[in-house]
Design a protein around this nucleic acid. Structure first.
Lengths: 312, 312
DNA sequence: TCTTCACACAAGTAATACTTAATTGAAGGC
DNA sequence: GCCTTCAATTAAGTATTACTTGTGTGAAGA
């Protein structure tokens, strides 16, 4: 093995050409003329002592050697590029991009974010509500708040408080169904966004926790947790609401949570960021605000019986 | 984020400097003068708009930004380097480096390799017997033959025939201990190199397979399988031998395997190579020879009862 | 205090990368 | 079958980048 590495510009030219399978497109990506790119590839092939591309009529294809080089080159440059982007981001102490699911955004984050923005006017806050599990590195997102059991390989992952569910409804509806037993006759609202939980955290689980027989009947299903809660606010029925989703509506009297029993799941919200970003000032500020904000309302549920769903 | 990537030579200079934490040593690695390297780092810092190193009296240390960049840069260049080396190796159709454990080498491979070398005179064969699990990519090894249950992430892994164990001893000793029952009084040889197997494949397991009571007494222990077999050849006692380890000595009459019952483990020998190497001619030739060689002697054990150890 | 060590700077030079412009060679429309 | 178009190549000239030599600076250690 003569040397550790060939000329890097030539290698980058090869990477672009292999990804596009076209010298012209690769040249465009690198902002050079096709001639320059052709020359780079040629010089790399001379360096190696064998062709990397087979030149066809109006296309190119990789040789054996090219096929051996292409994936590693792609990975290598991707790693370098990611590292560089991350370095640029570390230097940026003003902007902060946060992503979270639509339900948490609507019911918990959005009403509170104004408070954060006001106490940190130097931070340029950008927000992206999506269900898609974004790639922090690739998508230029600094912080993600995600719900689930969490397998956050390679990320800093800080779990929030335990998550549990309790029935909520309008005060009017509560007058009609004042007891857990009577609830079985009430119109029930199902939140399908947490149907992935195992063991399940749904109406059957809650009734079981109360020691009540329950045969699932019909009910209204919503794919988003915030829609389920909104439906409950509108008096459509009784929803099984998660702590962060119901807190605002309960505080402001639109909903009541009359039965002081909740079922707890092991799934939680987690605060996620890249390790290299964990101590950046704006991220530290957001993290501290986020967890402080959760603690602020923790006392509200002191009189609840919390029953872990896996013990049912 | 202005551009995708900074000048690559500058980035490589940074990588070397960060790995050595010294501009002088980095310059030496890249075969340039310290001045050139210093200039490269400076240009990279200008590109970024912030310093990457903090210049101390007679040392340098990474800044926040430098610490963000260094690991990614290291990974990136390592990936590129590995890809390049692999590409060079793909072009080499003459040399072949094989590694295996000392026991398989002594008892199975070494006696047969001459045959392979003779029928492939064009291949420059290099052999490395070690227990260490070498990294094919890093250590420039083309093929590894390893024993175990196999978790060969990222490698082409071809399992050999099922592996089983049966008692072997010298003919003289066999006259003294002609039956499985009598074996309990015989001097037993233990091969500790397979003590990691689960469920265990040792003397208690074999006697259990025979339906015999057995209380483990003393015995001679060897850390290498080949030493255990050698001891059996010397008449020291009865060893529980694996198929590839005993075949030569049984064929040539030094040992006999009188009890036609063997215990089978799920662990096997695997033929391992890098995916990019799988179709290189010399590796293909070696692979085909290896598996054909195993088949050659498969008939020898046709009259054996093979009892999977996990059913015991 | 003097020496040594590690890096920085400046000027000049060597090497490399890139552009423009013309060329080849084959596919596809007419 | 001819012409057009497309993709890559080649050659010559130019711009840019990378490197060397030589000198300078500041601090640690003898």
């Amino acid at each position: 093995m003569s040397e550790r590495l060939p000329p890097l510009t030539a290698l980058r030219a090869f990477d672009a050409a292999a990804r596009h399978m076209s010298f012209a497109k690769a040249a465009e990506e690198l902002n050079v003329t096709p001639a320059a790119l052709s020359f780079q590839i040629k010089s790399l092939e001379e360096h190696l002592g064998a062709p990397l591309f087979r030149r066809l009529n109006r296309a190119v294809e990789l040789t054996e050697a090219g096929m051996a080089l292409a994936p590693g080159a792609k990975d290598g440059f991707r790693a370098l590029s990611a590292a560089w982007q991350q370095t640029r981001r570390v230097l940026d102490t003003t902007s902060l991009t946060v992503t979270a699911g639509p339900a948490l955004t609507a019911k918990w984050l959005a009403p509170r974010l104004y408070d954060f923005a006001r106490s940190h006017p130097e931070i340029d806050l950008r927000f992206s509500a999506t269900l898609r599990n974004v790639d922090l590195q690739r998508d230029g997102v600094d912080v993600a708040i995600r719900f689930g059991y969490g397998s956050d390989e390679g990320l800093v992952s800080l779990p929030a408080r335990a998550e549990w569910l309790t029935p909520v409804m309008t005060p009017d509806l509560c007058a009609q169904f004042p007891t857990p037993e009577s609830l079985r006759a009430a119109p029930l609202i199902y939140d399908d966004s947490i149907s992935f939980l195992s063991p399940p955290c749904d109406w059957p689980a809650w009734f079981k926790a109360m020691g009540l027989e329950f045969t699932p009947g019909s009910g209204t299903h919503f794919s988003n947790a915030d829609h389920a809660i909104d439906a409950a606010c509108a008096g459509l029925g009784v929803a099984l609401g998660r702590r962060p989703m119901i807190i605002k509506d309960v505080q402001e009297g639109r909903l009541v949570a009359p039965f002081k029993t909740a079922i707890e799941t092991e799934a939680r919200f987690r605060f996620l960021c890249l390790p290299a970003s964990a101590e950046r000032p704006q991220i530290k500020a957001f993290r501290e605000w986020f967890f402080a904000e959760i603690e602020k309302t923790a006392h509200m549920w002191d009189d609840f019986d919390i029953i872990p769903v896996q013990t049912l």
